[in-house]
Amino acid sequence: MTTSERVLTGERADLTQTLGRHRGFLRHTVRGLTDEQAAARTTVSELCLGGLIKHVAVTEERWMRFAVGGAEAMQGEPLDWANGFRMVDGESLAGLLDRYAEVAARTDELIATLDLDASHPLPVAPWFEPGASWSVRRVLLHLIAETAQHAGHAGHADILREAIDGSKTMG
């Protein structure tokens, strides 16, 4: 049974709907853009709207691997830090959005089925407290915050889009 066939209630519904809303803001921000516009760097950084879609999809996918199997499962394929926030040859906005939709669908399935209280030790990294663990719930809250930070009103995506053509997600 898929999430679309299942009726989520309570906390699971709240988490799914909130994450979905912020994903929607991010997708809305890139509506109507060409691949060239989505790849345009409108600030001094390497960040572009297509790269932002790619980054959020990769981040969501990695954290959900952590939610399922812990730090080892999070590793997967090595991150391409140099190209993680930009579009590279062969990437299209449509392709990045399709990939993001696949990741989102998988996450929604996991929200419906995982034990939200299950917990795993965080990977060793200077930005995590040594020995700390996160529950699946905490991972989902982190993904909501991460997605909201990049999307929505005055988020990274809005700033980049406004520099392209003056459009904003809200207003």
Rank of each mutant, 00 (worst) to 15 (best):
R12M: 07
S92A: 13
D35P: 08
V44L: 07
M64E: 13
H28E: 07
S92D: 08
A125R: 13
D14S: 15
M74P: 01
H153A: 10
E11F: 08
E72P: 01
R106L: 05
V136D: 00
A154T: 08
S119G: 13
V103H: 00
F25G: 01
A71L: 11
A39G: 14
L116M: 15
L93N: 06
Q17M: 04
Q75T: 15
H22F: 09
A163F: 14
R6N: 07
S45M: 11
E5N: 11
V7M: 01
H28K: 14
D165I: 02
S92Q: 13
Q17Y: 09
S119D: 14
L8W: 01
G24V: 03
L79G: 13
V30Y: 12
A112S: 15
A38H: 04
M87I: 11
M74A: 15
G20P: 06
T42D: 13
W81A: 11
L47M: 15
G155H: 05
E102W: 03
H153Y: 01
I53K: 00
T147Q: 01
R21K: 10
G90L: 11
M64S: 05
S133M: 03
G152F: 00
A13S: 09
P130S: 05
A40M: 12
Q17A: 09
D89Q: 13
P123T: 05
G32K: 06
H28S: 15
W63P: 01
L97R: 02
H156V: 03
D14C: 08
C48L: 10
M74F: 12
G20C: 01
E11S: 15
E129P: 06
L143D: 09
A73H: 08
I53L: 14
R12N: 08
E146H: 15
H153F: 08
V136M: 02
A118N: 09
V136W: 06
L116P: 13
H142R: 05
G90F: 10
D115N: 09
R62A: 07
A39Q: 06
I144C: 11
L114C: 11
L52K: 06
S135V: 01
I164L: 11
C48K: 00
V68H: 02
R21N: 12
V124A: 12
R137N: 02
A132S: 09
W63K: 02
R12D: 04
D14P: 00
F85D: 03
L33Q: 03
H22C: 04
L143H: 02
A104K: 00
G166C: 04
G70W: 05
D165Y: 03
H120L: 05
Q37E: 14
L116H: 14
E102H: 06
A145E: 14
R12L: 06
G69L: 05
R31F: 11
F128K: 02
T147R: 04
W127Y: 12
A94T: 15
E36T: 09
F66H: 04
L26T: 09
H142S: 09
A67G: 10
H142T: 12
E60T: 09
A13K: 15
H150P: 00
E129M: 11
A151Q: 02
L52A: 05
A112D: 01
L26E: 00
H120R: 09
P126L: 07
R65K: 14
A118P: 09
N83M: 08
G32L: 07
R62K: 12
L160T: 02
G24S: 13
L47Q: 10
R106N: 05
T16W: 03
G131M: 07
T169M: 01
N83D: 11
G171L: 07
E162K: 10
